[in-house]
Amino acid sequence: MDESEPQLLKQGAEARVYICKYLGKQTIIKERFQKKYRHPDLDIEIVKERIRNEARSILRCKYANIRTPALYLVDFERRKIYMEYLATNITVKDFVIKHGSANEHFDTIAKMIGQTLRKLHDYNIVHGDLTSSNMLIIPKVQNDGDWFDPAWLAKGQVELVMIDFGLSYIDASVEDKGVDLYVLERALLSTHSNYENLFETILEAYKTANPKGGVEETISKFEEVRARGRKRTMIG
């Protein structure tokens, strides 16, 4: 097997991400390592389920024409998943922090996000962990550099990539979709509290993305979930 020595790229909360050469290609290996705080039976169950979810949703996204890293290999034994490496990328989180003050960028990104989420939900995929860190912006043509030029955005030279499908599931209910939107709203409010209309713009694009409609039920569920969260009595 053509597999070079993996280099640790990032240590996350639940996974270590390595980069290596696999079958001649630059590859990301995501290893969901054991969490010692939880019961070993529970740990194995969670990890298996998340690897399965991630692989399933990536496949379904491919079908729905939503850009994700391509899936190369799933290794349950070693708790690993092999995926396409996207050298040039910026997370939406970093993008908003760095370039968010320019309004035209901001709107373009928000619309892309709204449309992509709508497509996800129309294909009954619920992401389960929508945050601005789990969305990448990449140039349509990958270059060798690891920098990102915001000017590409204006020229329509970028696409949105959804990542981290560990908490996702398919064949989701309307309620699940509503919760998905609520999770995103909460994440954006806490991470980008200085851009209050970010979520509103995303939601507007979400509503109008598919002219066939059929979104009213999801939106009303979303509003119901939101009301539950805000109005719930909070007894000390």
Binding site: V179, R186, L189, G236
Partner: peptide, 23 residues
């Protein structure tokens, strides 16, 4: 507690809620 489950962090003069129970 009995009535609350929240993950909170301080940022710019507010204790902001990053995560909480949805029920």
């Amino acid at each position: 507690s009995g009535g609350n489950t929240q993950i909170i962090a301080y940022d710019r003069n507010k204790y902001r809620i990053f995560g909480e129970t949805i029920d």
